[in-house]
Nucleic acid binder design. Sequence first.
RNA 1: UGCCCCUUAGUGUAACGGCAGCACGACUGACUCUGAAUCAGUUAGUCUAGGUUCAAAUCCUAGAGGGGCAACCA
Length: 572
Amino acid sequence: MNTAPPNSIDETPAGEPPEEKRSLNFIEQIIEDDLQAGKWGGRVHTRFPPEPNGYLHIGHAKSICLNFGLAESYNGAYNLRFDDTNPTKEEQEFVDSIKEDVRWIGFDWKEREFFASDYFDQLYDWAVQLINVGKAYVCDLDGEQIREYRGTLTEPGKDSPFRDRSVEENLDLFERMCGGEFPDGSHTLRAKIDMASSNLNLRDPVMYRILKAHHHRTGDKWCIYPMYDYAHGQSDSLEKVTHSICTLEFENHRPLYDWFCESLEIHHPRQIEFSRLNLTYTVMSKRRLLELVKDGHVNGWDDPRMPTISGLRRRGYTPGSVREFCRRVGVTKFDGVTDIVQLENALREDLNERAPRVMGVLRPLKVVIENYPEGQSEELEAVNNPQDEAAGTRKVPFSREIYIEQTDFMEDAPKKFFRLSVGREVRLRYAYFVTCTEVIKDDGGEVIELRCTYDPETKGGNAPDGRKVKGTIHWVSAEHALTAEVRLYDHLFSKEDPDDVEEDRDWLENLNPNSLETLADCKLEPSLAHAEVGIGYQFERTGYFCLDKDTQPDKPVFNRAVSLRDTWAKKK
RNA sequence: UGCCCCUUAGUGUAACGGCAGCACGACUGACUCUGAAUCAGUUAGUCUAGGUUCAAAUCCUAGAGGGGCAACCA
């Protein structure tokens, strides 16, 4: 700490006022208070505990950034732990995708990769210990009966008839449960707490159930598996976690979390709950995302319209934008809904700094420049990124026939329309001023071609006589153009709240039928032939795009990650 | 009908008993070889009612509104 390098950002320049103390979220407050009070020996140790039963989504990203970010900023450690206690739902594919996604977001958990299934032996021993002190018992009630005995929200439950079995009998039964002697569902091991508790989680919760299922890591070794409540806190404890951060729905489980740690007299992390992320125009539950995938409403977990990490990545989101977004949404216990434009803006901001600029015409309209010599072409210099001089320049070919955007021409243009119309002059970006002289239509009256003249004196985009044009439009030389498919995405749901449906109707009815628009005949500048997956490009005046994995050698496919802000579109 | 949690501009958040700030959005305007970016400005808030206090978004009580909880899911 006191050996900071000369350029350390920790150094406050002399004479400058000390940096104002950053405001802390409520979890940071707790941590600082703990540190202040000398708890945990000054350690901060967190974990991210996904269940490998689906792909990670942007809500998980919030949790990852919170948990791992906290550990990083307090110089602590963080674990990635798979909560794999239910073999009927979990798969190796999900383990792999989760690791890939966490890495992509930008965190390295190094050797601290764990599985709840690593602790099955220890958990078993602890269960025996609880039986021995009379705090757990084997119950023969079936699922239905357990539910009946549990009581309701307003009425207390009643004790299981098996609650007072002897320690010996419990030990014997539990061992035989584990030995595979009983069929699935015939017995459970339950904690003996309080069937009259106002917190239903404390009404003798099930610790172990019999499940003769193959586990993706332990194989067929076990036929009993621990429940979340019995496995989670103890896993935290074994890993010497200090702050166990989870979402609000586990708040009512905290007394149980505490009960197990106290009863077992083991290291007792502090559970802290925060509100999960909700986004407008999207759903975030794993159950629903799974349904979208399974029923083919989207094309897989990494469909660019999905709020999954893999979907965002494929869509063109950057790790930095995801992290910045998570920082901006903050951390509270209030269950709100974040406007999805926050996410989009984080991306725009990030890509504005780094994305190479190119020209691409999404809906081409052919333009013939009549006074430009036939067969001639030339290379014009274009700036790669006005935000970053070091990005340099490139050459863009120009010729007699070019494509411009259909929306950049209007026949009966209002005065405020700064683009092309008959008799109006605009600048072709980095090229020449052109004036539209004639409109050519097909039999149906559709505009299919424009005739223009150019001013050779304006090469590069400036007029020597100092005359100005109000509009600058992008273009692509027809002869040199790369033809590509471009996929435009809109919100997956047409309602801000997908659950906003009539009585008895389904959230799926709010799926936006226009969430994907495929443009098959887009014209891109030739430099894009060397585009790489994973790099965001700005198609000037249009948006940010990236090469999709569906690209074929003869057919490039681009995704629009997000459009550019368009105040003109708003005015219309 | 029980228990637990929550409530600050449109949205997300800050304030730690002492001047209600910030970000995003929206709206103006400036600038511009991207109607982008940038810059300047405007807009708008403490759920309600009592109480404690010199002083309350903050503490107390009650109410309203929202969320969670009755898987051998996590």
